[in-house]
């Protein structure tokens, strides 16, 4: 899909920023699909209602953080509020990129382009232009 095609894709207004509490996946309808929406600070993320592993409904995911790889007897909890955990096998996905934590599965959770403008939240049913997560600070920290 070219940039021009992406820009002409329909944009769906899915609500106001305050409609989306943190740490809770909110299912919304957009473009005939049910998608999951998760707010973290002033950012909002949207993703498909289907786990890439066995197809579980990701709108029923729990929100958490995750343990980073660490030295023995050290526990480094990170990405709080940005991890969605599949309601079936507990696979964890970074909601910003759809990447599976720890590489448990090669496939990614499909994430959608999502923007907040003037307190309103908009979604396009296409992949976002995801920046490198390593270079991306965690919102609000």
């Amino acid at each position: 899909m070219t940039i021009a095609q992406q820009q002409t894709m329909p944009e769906h207004r899915i609500g106001k920023l305050e409609d989306f509490p943190e740490r809770k996946v909110v299912p919304v309808e957009a473009g005939g699909k049910t998608i999951g929406v998760l707010r973290r600070g002033d950012d909002v993320h949207a993703f498909a209602n289907r786990c890439p592993h066995h197809g579980a409904p990701m709108c029923r995911a729990q929100v958490s953080g995750t343990m980073r790889p660490s030295e023995p007897n050290q526990f480094v909890y990170d990405l709080d509020g940005l991890i969605v955990k599949c309601p079936w096998h507990a696979y964890e996905f970074d909601v910003r990129s759809g990447e599976a934590m720890g590489g448990i599965i090669r496939g990614r959770l499909f994430v959608y382009h999502c923007e907040v403008r003037h307190g309103e939240v908009f979604v396009q049913l296409r992949r976002p232009a995801t920046p490198s997560l390593k270079a991306s600070p965690i919102p609000g920290e």
Partner: peptide, 9 residues
């Protein structure tokens, strides 16, 4: 447990 023992859905 890594999750709820049952499927939330």
């Amino acid at each position: 447990h890594p999750n709820t023992t049952y499927r939330l859905d």
